[in-house]
Computed example of a mutant assay.
Amino acid sequence: MSQAFTVKAEARDKVGKGAARHLRRSGMIPAVIYGDNKEPLSIALPYKETFLALHAGGFMTHVATIELNGEKIQVLPKDYQLEPVRDFLMHVDFLRVSEKSRVTLEVPVHFENEEKSPGLKRGGVLNVVRHEVEVECPANAIPEAFTIDLTGIDIGDSIHASALTLPANVSLTITDRDFTIATIAAPAALRSEEGEADEAEVETAPASDAEDEE
């Protein structure tokens, strides 16, 4: 499994807002481990290590190891809460996983070879519809990211889910359509020129054409 971080946790006997505030004042944050048909575990994690892991990248797509009372528990972060004003980490939910577990999660989409895209060279704009796509996959084979090659992509072209290269045993959760991931949109100046050209064509249309339409 791809490891995000390893952290030592403490069992948390007391729950509730008051207990959580006390934990945070002492440099810890509350967390819960659930799943794998076992009782949820309420734990406390060191704030600094967990906060740094969160902002190191890949937090939600890497399996982590939590050491609790001498036991090493493999988990996947499933959710976290931030204090809206100060961006302070408040709580983390973890899903217990094993070598046989399959998980559903969002995998980021990256783009490469922008310089080889005719559309971008002409001033087009990469309009990303989905920065992440949801997949189901083994917990020990979570893709780091999907990379899409923009070579040859021109203005007006769309990039769909079928352009993704899925590793073995990895499947998209949306299967009823070939959904759009990104498009190359025309620059504002080009759209304006096309609009002016259309108006000019209407203004210079022969009178006979206008009479026929009436």
Results as ranks from 00 to 15, higher is better:
T175A: 13
T175M: 15
T175P: 03
T175K: 14
T175N: 13
T175E: 08
T175W: 09
T175Y: 04
D176E: 15
D176G: 04
D176Q: 11
D176H: 12
R177L: 03
R177N: 02
R177C: 03
R177S: 03
D178Q: 09
D178K: 09
D178T: 08
D178C: 14
F179N: 04
F179A: 06
F179P: 03
F179L: 12
F179E: 09
F179Q: 08
T180M: 07
T180D: 02
T180V: 07
I181T: 03
I181S: 01
I181E: 00
A182C: 15
A182I: 14
T183R: 03
T183H: 02
T183C: 05
I184G: 00
I184H: 00
I184E: 00
I184N: 00
I184R: 00
I184M: 01
A185E: 05
A185H: 01
A185W: 00
A185M: 03
A186R: 04
A186K: 09
A186V: 05
A186C: 12
A186N: 04
A186E: 09
P187H: 05
P187M: 08
P187E: 03
P187V: 07
A188W: 04
A188E: 12
A188R: 07
A188M: 05
A188I: 14
A188V: 07
A189K: 05
A189D: 08
A189C: 10
A189N: 07
A189M: 03
L190V: 04
L190F: 02
R191D: 14
R191A: 13
R191I: 15
R191E: 13
S192D: 01
S192P: 00
S192Y: 01
E193C: 08
E193W: 14
E193F: 09
E194I: 12
E194G: 12
E194T: 15
E194A: 13
G195K: 11
G195D: 06
G195W: 06
E196G: 09
E196A: 14
E196M: 15
E196H: 12
E196C: 11
A197T: 10
A197K: 06
A197Y: 02
D198P: 00
D198I: 05
D198E: 03
E199L: 07
E199S: 09
E199D: 09
E199A: 13
E199T: 04
E199C: 07
E199P: 01
A200T: 00
A200P: 00
A200K: 00
A200D: 01
E201Q: 10
E201P: 02
E201Y: 09
E201V: 14
E201K: 14
V202C: 08
V202F: 10
V202G: 14
E203L: 15
E203K: 09
E203Y: 12
E203F: 07
E203R: 12
T204S: 15
T204P: 01
T204M: 13
T204N: 12
A205T: 08
A205S: 08
A205F: 10
P206E: 05
P206R: 05
P206Q: 05
P206G: 08
A207Q: 14
A207H: 12
A207V: 13
S208E: 10
S208C: 15
S208N: 13
S208V: 10
D209V: 14
A210T: 15
A210K: 15
A210W: 10
E211Y: 11
E211F: 14
D212V: 11
D212I: 10
D212K: 13
E213F: 11
E213W: 04
E213D: 02
